[in-house]
Design a protein around this nucleic acid. Structure first.
Lengths: 197, 197, 197, 197
DNA sequence: TTTTAACCGAGACGGTACGTCACGTCTTGTG
DNA sequence: CACAAGACGTGACGTACCGTCTCGGTTAAAA
């Protein structure tokens, strides 16, 4: 990631921030493939040398930039049932991926395959978000007696992004309300109930 | 895909084959991003013009090249149980993805995000393979009475590549025997049984 | 110099000419050190790649450009005496070096030290010019009986540029009419007469 | 040359020496064009700022560095004749220029064209050396009666470096014993004798 | 048999972006 | 203040591919 540095003039923190900001903006606007170091430099009002002094190449820059880009979302509201809550939170996530950030996210996904670092960063980010978003849902479901404490929550945290991601970016099939409902009814609920026994 | 052509000297079929062969080889060796048309031309002993006469760009070429690259595998042998068969067929697939073709596949995955055409081709290829590979397994399971005819087979055909793909290429977590067994026990079997009622 | 080329699309001669023309113009305007390949490309309306396809680097380009840049000057008029003719032709040359081309020539001189190729080219150019310019003068001097046929002409052809060059560009002493006259009287004439015996 | 400085901590003299030493070494090793301030700083174990505090730029530094680099050579031994002495002293000079210092000297020559200051320094240095080297020779020649007191010594002091320099660095012709002998016989001796009358 | 239109190789061409280098200036902390 | 270290904006470098465009020569179907 960012290179080491000990003595001498310290790096201007603001440059790094400006660079990453510019990188994320461009990522959103034109997609990873069309992000240019020169464009990043121009937008951040920074010289190319300053970028290359800190990052080995474009991939490394974007990886870091994304790391500081938070995928924060508010947790879903209570719909009264596990089924409803799951449908709600998944639909919401799908919506956000279809939104303006779609291009950004698709670009990052593409990159993640090549760049292990970015993949890790991205994964942690996604996992963190998912855990937070689903945590309250499962707690409520346990309180309601829909599932037991033994239910394998983390299994769901893996299934959801896997399927959404594959369907959206790989098989390019539509991810509509109907699909989400079927996915919850036919996969998530059975899996949770099975591990609740 | 390949462009039209009317009168005059017909195209030399062998060129197209050589080009696609070279493209696939390079894809395997250096990954999609580092495949260059110039390298393909050089390896196929063909001029760049000949390539551009047939394909619009790199993506189109690779998409076609991959189309002719078969992901054929022999169906799994009978282990005596649905669980065993599933574990067997999934493990086998994981193995092949970890092998020399891993780089190739990763490249294609990356590409699929950008190139809708390739995504379709790839998806059909995967789906076709999966259907063929799992078909016999499900038939045997029904014969044994492990699942009913109503069991949602296609659900499994979506879950398997989704999870394998995400875990291998996105979250970069290991996909070992233990994981496959848990996946079958905690997800696939429950889903199949749930839809068998 | 220019690289070889056999089959394939032939190089567009006009490009080479335009490039060399632009190079010489810039050489004149800003001096060798400030000539930029990018500027040459822009002025010649040519891509950088086209320049680098033909020349290894800036030095090689300028060397060639200069080669095709003729230092042609009309021979001096007859003043009636060897002394007068020599003073005339040398003064004229000095004038031209002090003129707008001074920057160009100084730049080339500087370059010649580093670039053997350019030095040769430059030297031939200078020698050729000098030979042509002095030839008629010596013939007339022989006709007048001022020197014999045995007089070592080529000695003079070496002395003149050596001294002019050194004085102008190395010791930065003024090269005025008085100096030229003294040089002719105290060096050139004695040398010619000595070898005329 | 070196910038002014009034109050505060006095400059560390040793730095300046180390810098000039490093500059001269590099000049010798890689030639003027490839000397970089950064390399000088590194070799002198000094920061770039320290160099720029003392010199305006590379040219100024090298000019100063060279100033402190003495071109001292012992005067030639007595061969018994003006001709022999001249050949001897010129040959010796040529030898030294062909030696390891050739690169250094060529670099300086190149620089002199651009940098008037250096040219002056260099010229004085050369002139001083030449005067010293030739002084004894002329005195002996006068004592022998080969030339008169009126002989224009300074003319020779100009001719020698002019011709040597031009031939070595401009026309890249060999400067061997034969050439030196011819130069002395056909130019220097005639010029001296002519002015001795 | 002769056209004739497209094929084919080689590679030039105008571009765009790359990652590197050195410049000369500026900004730290330490003595 | 001097000094070492090194970040910074600038600007040119030479390289790599892109996708397009000539060339000269070939090849098979249509005239």
């Amino acid at each position: 990631m960012t290179f080491a540095q000990c003595v001498g003039r310290p790096r201007d923190k603001s440059r790094g921030v400006a660079i990453e900001k510019a990188a994320v903006e461009l990522l959103r606007e034109v997609g990873y493939e069309h992000v240019t170091i020169e464009a990043v430099a121009a937008r951040a009002q920074v010289s190319k040398a300053t970028i290359y002094r800190r990052w080995k190449n474009k991939a490394a820059l974007v990886a870091d930039a994304v790391h500081h880009y938070a995928f924060c979302k508010a947790p879903a509201t209570d719909t009264g049932s596990l089924r409803g809550d799951l449908i709600e939170v998944i639909s919401e996530k799908v919506m956000s991926m279809k939104s303006a950030d779609g291009q950004l996210i698709a670009g990052l996904m593409a990159m993640a395959r090549t760049d292990g670092n970015l993949a890790d960063v991205l994964n942690q980010s996604i996992a963190g978000y998912a855990t937070a978003a689903h945590s309250a849902i499962f707690d409520r479901a346990i309180a309601r007696g829909e599932i037991s404490k033994e239910a394998k929550r983390d299994l769901i945290l893996q299934l959801v992004p896997s399927v959404i991601n594959f369907r959206m970016f790989m098989s390019h099939q539509s991810v509509n309300r109907k699909f989400v409902e079927n996915f919850v009814d036919d996969v998530l609920i059975p899996v949770l109930q099975h591990s609740s026994k």
